[in-house]
Structures are given as C-alpha cells and as structure tokens.
Simulated assay, not measured.
Amino acid sequence: MSNLLVTGGAGFIGANFVHYWMENYPQDKVVVLDALTYAGNKANLEPVAKHPNFYFCHGNICDTPLVETLLKEHRIDTLVHFAAESHVDRSITGPDAFIETNIIGTHSLLKAAKKIWLDEGLNKENHRFHHVSTDEVYGTLGPNDPAFSETTPYAPNSPYSASKAASDHLVRAYHHTYGLQTTISNCSNNYGPYHFPEKLIPLVITNILQDKPLPIYGDGKQIRDWLYVEDHARGIDLVLKKGRVGECYNIGGINEWANIDIVKLICELMNEEFARNPSLAEKYPNATKAQQGQAEELITFVTDRAGHDRRYAIDPRKSNGELSYQPQESFETGIRKTLSWYLDNEIWWSAVMDGSYQDWIATQYAQEVTKA
C-alpha cells in the first residue's frame, strides 16, 4: 500500500492519472493538491470523489508549510508532480505565472520533500518524487532530425518550456546534491477526456459543435507526437514501479501528426458521427456544418504564434526497454474515444468554457470533493 500526493490532480493529465491509479490500486491513499486555477476543475475528480481513500486539498504548491503538513499527516511516500502552467500562448502573453508555478512551485515541493523525508526521516529509505515534464524542453526538430531522446540537450524556445526545463534541473539537483529519490518523465502531447478546451483537439471538437471557426496557426504543418492520456498514466505507473532513481524517461506514442491533418481527421470523424447518429443534430442544433457533412469548411488559417516550434517527436526506446512500456491506444482508437467522450459530456465542456463549472459541480453532486 502506498500513500500518494498528486499535485495538479484536478487538471487534465493529473485527474486522468488519479482515475487510473484509484481504479488499479484502490487500496492506496491518494491526496490531491490543486489550486483550482483556470484549468483546475473539481468536476474532473467526480468519478473518484466518493472513494474512501481519496482526499482533496485546495491549496497552492508554493505554500511550502502546507505541503509539509500533507506529507506528514498522510504519511506520503510518493509525490507525483503534475501541477504546472502549461499553455504556450499564455506563457507568451503572461510569463510571470509560469515562473511562479513551474519553477518556484517545484522548488517549494522539493524543499518540503527534503525536509520531511530526509531531514526528519519520514520514509527516508522508501520515497519517490516523480516530476512530470514535457518534450518541449528539448526545443524543436527539423523534418529529418532524429526524435528527442533522454540525452538530447535542452533548448527551450518559449517561456513555458524554459520554466519546465528549469524545474527539471531543480529536480535533478535535489537528487544529486541531497539524495532525494527522484524520477522525471518527459511526454508527448496528451489528448483524451477532460482536456481543457483551449488546446487543439478539444478546441476543434467543441468549435465544430458550435459552428465556430477552427483556427490553424500558420500553414498548420507543425508536427506533434500524440499520446492518449491513459497511456501516459500507465507510463508513469511503470516509472514509479520499475524506473531507476535519478533517471529520466521519455514517454511517447511514436505517433507524429501535422496539426492540419489532425484537424481534418476530426472534421471527417465528426461528419461521420452526425451521419451515423441523427439524434446528434437535435442535441447539437448549432453544428450545422457537421450536420451537412462539411465540418472542414470551418477551418480558418490565422497568423502563426511567436517562436512556434516546428516539430516534436519522442524516442521512447529507453522506456520500452527498461520499463516494457507500450501505448495501448492507437491514434485511431484514442481519438475516437476522445470524440465520443466530448459528444457525451456537453455539460462538462460547456460549463468549463463559460466559467460556470464550479456552480455546476455544486449542483450535480451531493458529496463535496474536499475532505478534512
């Protein structure tokens, strides 16, 4: 039995990890610490809210005394750190929040873990601090460059990726300097249920359902490596169970797609869904283009963003070899699951988009997620 502290557990990837963990390890205690900023949503945790081993704390990772208290009171032996500002566009217009959360917040967690686990001796010999990072710390790739490996030099190109690179270095330093038992994973772009609708895939899905333009940066030929979010959770599980302390592991899907091709695929699948299921026209009366089988007509090219990396790709051979990691979802199966989830969960995404999700969760569920 383990006691986990999951930071950012009300966000997209963090919440999916919590769902995965509590389904596969129901005997473990899981404590979520989340500040519930714009992308943190208690509704994401509703599926586990009534689990007897689930606890929620509304708080900030920069509050070091709070983190220390959680580590001690719940006798935490495993800290999985998802909490981060992660949207590149927001980092360009407002980088301060990224420095505060991603660098100072990570350092706050490291200080607390060192104090409680090492200095005070709680779980001194049996603990793990796992830091969830991104492939963006490696910079950008040319069309024919080899994929990023764990030995690729860091070359971040946005305030977001620079802040994540700095946090990676801090985690490494706390292992090598103080002996904190750490691991780091750098993952591909994730997609799946509960994805905040400002990101590409959920934005395209929800905009089609509202007959809104599908904005494509530049020529749309930026290439990303995509990973279904549950496969990411599975990879972190393997790092925690089999990963060597002090090591970094790339978790990827070997699944490169140009942005424009993803958007066209979603349009095609959405057209198919509306043709196959006539009730969708009644459920989504504003989705006139999809009803006509012409969702691709919503595609609109817009000015490219500053410093837009051209290509990311993950080389997962280390994870495949050391951890026996393999994604279970292909892009075809994963994107169909994602599309079905958004079609079935209009209440969730519409509440997120209009900012009313806190009121919605309060009216939908009798049991408060937070526990003393």
Rank of each mutant, 00 (worst) to 15 (best):
G105C: 04
L79W: 09
F56W: 08
L79D: 00
A84I: 02
D119G: 11
H81F: 01
L110W: 07
T64K: 12
H58T: 14
L118E: 06
S86K: 10
H169A: 15
I116K: 12
K115V: 02
G121C: 02
S163M: 10
D168P: 13
A113Q: 05
G179A: 10
K124I: 01
P65D: 01
D119V: 09
N123K: 08
D63S: 15
K115H: 10
L79F: 08
A97R: 06
E125G: 09
K114Y: 10
N123E: 04
D135P: 04
E150V: 02
L180R: 13
H130M: 10
A84H: 05
D119S: 13
N102A: 00
E73L: 12
F56A: 10
A112T: 03
Y55R: 15
D89H: 03
T106F: 00
Y154M: 02
L66C: 12
S133H: 05
A112Q: 05
S133L: 07
L109Q: 09
K164R: 14
T134F: 02
S91T: 02
T152A: 08
Y154E: 10
L118D: 02
E125Y: 12
P95V: 03
A84G: 05
P159Y: 05
H81T: 00
C62A: 07
L180T: 13
L170V: 10
N102S: 01
V80Y: 08
T177C: 11
F129L: 03
V88W: 04
H58K: 15
L118I: 13
P143Y: 02
K72P: 00
D77N: 15
T140G: 04
L122P: 01
D135I: 10
F82N: 13
A173D: 06
E85H: 11
N123L: 02
P143V: 02
P65C: 08
P146L: 04
L70F: 12
K72T: 14
P95Q: 05
L118M: 06
E73M: 08
R90N: 12
V67P: 15
D135S: 09
T101A: 12
D89G: 13
E73R: 07
S161F: 13
N126R: 06
G59Y: 07
S163I: 08
W117P: 01
G142W: 03
I92V: 14
T140V: 01
G179S: 10
V171E: 06
H87I: 14
Y178H: 15
